[in-house]
Design a binder for these strands. Structure first.
Lengths: 343, 343
DNA sequence: AACGTCGCCGCAAACGATTGCACAAAAAAT
DNA sequence: ATTTTTTGTGCAATCGTTTGCGGCGACGTT
């Protein structure tokens, strides 16, 4: 071995005992004399012995490793989730192996394959935008392989999910806009196939209804790409004509909101006086732009913590969530900043 | 096995051949009849056989896994680095196992321990702020264990490093400000003890000298915390008095720049007309604020790519960088946006 | 007919650790 | 003094895969 890492055999040879004895001595098995235990432990210490986790995995078919599949690490939201996952994993002596799909289904599949061949004990998944067929997940779940989905819900009946209350988050945001006197509220929506987009749209609609405003389909525009440029263009189209102009925007995403903000400024509309604006996800920049952007904050860290905690319970068979599937819904928080306050 | 994953033995049993034959057939070894190969491959396909990577690791003492140690995932810069690492790793069939230290030395050490016992093939490290003694790294390097450091340089003579040219980045930024006619340029500096802060400050000073401006110590203020609030306050103090007011700011960090921007606005100074502003790191928000912030972009993705590429070369013994240590310095890029352009 | 060659394949050890079982020696019970 | 129990340890198989070595039958050559 390159590292010259000491093995049980090394200790055994040196001490003229068998590997079995060393193994047992190290783990304080009964039936090993105190004398032997002492000697073994001393030498192990001296040689800086560390059990070979790979050999252990093979023997026990348990790797103390969990796989995490996310679309993109660079998303602030996902990085906070990872952070939460990492914390709990570390505290429980689990390793985290990471794969980003870049929103591509083929990478999702092949990542899962290599993770499985690495004998991961469980999987934490936020699937890619391309994923519409969930068989590669449900097949595993049928074999009782532990999976917890977060943020994006799969269409699998007995899936274990951790999400955020997107409906409520959107509802609160739009209700807030209404309470500020905005009446004609645009929704820049997310990709149709993502459940979160649907939920946010539903929350938007319900808030309108409860606020006595009739939803208008022409005010709901899908910004599927989620780039600034896209929403910039969309916003220009919506607001360019002074006749019957909308007076607020609820964006499904802060980046989208940022694009909209730039568009509004470019056509000399004031925020929040002329147009109110609320985003989603509380990206790092949202408090720093001018005006600071009101937004719905998702508890990324907590999502990560919750998801892995449940996964570990499944792995340890403490809970069998897949028998009575659980969907944990965490609360969002509406952060009211300047962009939506005009009263 | 929970997953009922087919093994070579299963295939062997089914086909009444030995495991060796199956193994060889799958890898197209010479000396196996085409007929057998065909049958083996067919069955392997049918059973959806995937080699057990753990067994392979044990056998070959090579795990195709590399460990990444970073202070915090949530930093935008680090997440881009990870993204770069992930890409190259994936392309080379390597796995990435991730540990964040949260800037703590004990976690750094224990993470390395568990990674080593997982037989990682190499290590990519950006060490914690608490790390001042590098023996836990140099010990490994003495055993020829492949390590590449990025962003933060250790005090180890034969270390392999990948960093960014902080001096040059600062130099370009300040030279740009001078070329725009700004003459009294403040530097909001980083913590004195970080090498990167020093480099940036040196670049700032050299640019002034080369631009025919005498550096003025009173214009260099340390913003050690790096928060918006801190730089807001500092900026107010510096710019509040109209007499002999500075006319530009070079901030060591975009967040610091953002705080300064808000301060300037709050005292009705126009950017870039009255005050020019350049930040550092190209945070995601910098292009979205108003005015868009000029900044020095650090190629995080490329740092990640470069570091892991070198690491893989070391692992594959193609290069022995540790014999003739290499320090790759990547160029920054000055992104000129509105906040610093008045000509 | 005897021998060499070649194609095709199996045996068994190895990687490092665990563990059921057996076994020897020492201690205790009869 | 013999049997039983206890104490401490070792053997060997196992996890899944690879690989050096050797074997065996079929063929070709003299």
């Amino acid at each position: 071995m390159k590292l010259g890492q000491a093995t049980i055999k090394d200790i055994a040879r040196e001490l003229n005992v068998s590997s079995s004895t060393v193994s047992r001595a190290l783990k304080d098995y009964p039936g090993i004399s105190d004398e032997t235990k002492r000697k073994v432990k001393e030498l192990a210490d001296k040689l800086n012995y560390r059990p070979n986790a790979v050999a252990l995995s093979l023997r026990k078919s348990k790797s103390f490793t969990i796989g995490v599949i996310i679309p993109e690490v660079v998303h602030f939201f996902f990085s906070t989730v990872i952070s939460g996952i990492e914390e709990v994993a570390f505290a429980n002596n689990y390793n985290v192996i990471l794969c980003q799909t870049n929103e591509r289904l083929d990478r999702e599949k092949s990542s899962i394959d290599t993770m499985l061949s690495n004998q991961i004990d469980g999987l934490l998944v936020s699937y890619s935008k391309e994923t519409t067929d969930f068989e590669h997940f449900s097949k595993l779940m049928d074999l009782e392989f532990p999976i917890v989905f977060f943020d994006r819900l799969p269409e699998i009946s007995n899936a274990v999910n951790v999400t955020v209350n997107d409906f409520e988050g959107a509802y609160q945001a739009v209700t807030h806009l209404i309470s500020q006197g905005y009446k004609k509220i645009v929704h820049l929506a997310g990709p149709k196939n993502l459940a979160i987009s649907k939920k946010r749209k539903e929350g938007y609609i319900q808030a309108l209804l409860d606020g006595g405003i009739t939803p208008d389909e022409s005010l709901i525009v899908e910004c599927a790409a989620g780039t600034e440029k896209e929403s910039f263009d969309v916003t220009i189209v919506l607001f360019d004509n002074p006749e019957n102009r909308p007076d607020a925007i609820f964006a499904h995403h802060d980046i989208v909101a940022a694009g909209a903000m730039m568009a509004l400024k470019s056509i000399n509309l004031r925020i929040p006086e002329d147009v109110g604006l609320v985003g989603y996800s509380n990206w790092q920049f949202s408090s720093m732009i001018d005006p600071p952007l009101s937004t719905v904050s998702q508890p990324g860290f907590k999502i990560g913590e919750t998801a892995i905690t449940m996964l570990l319970e499944m792995i340890d068979k403490k809970k069998d969530y897949q028998k009575e599937p659980v969907h944990v819904v965490l609360d969002t928080e509406l952060l009211i900043r300047k962009s939506s306050v005009r009263l």
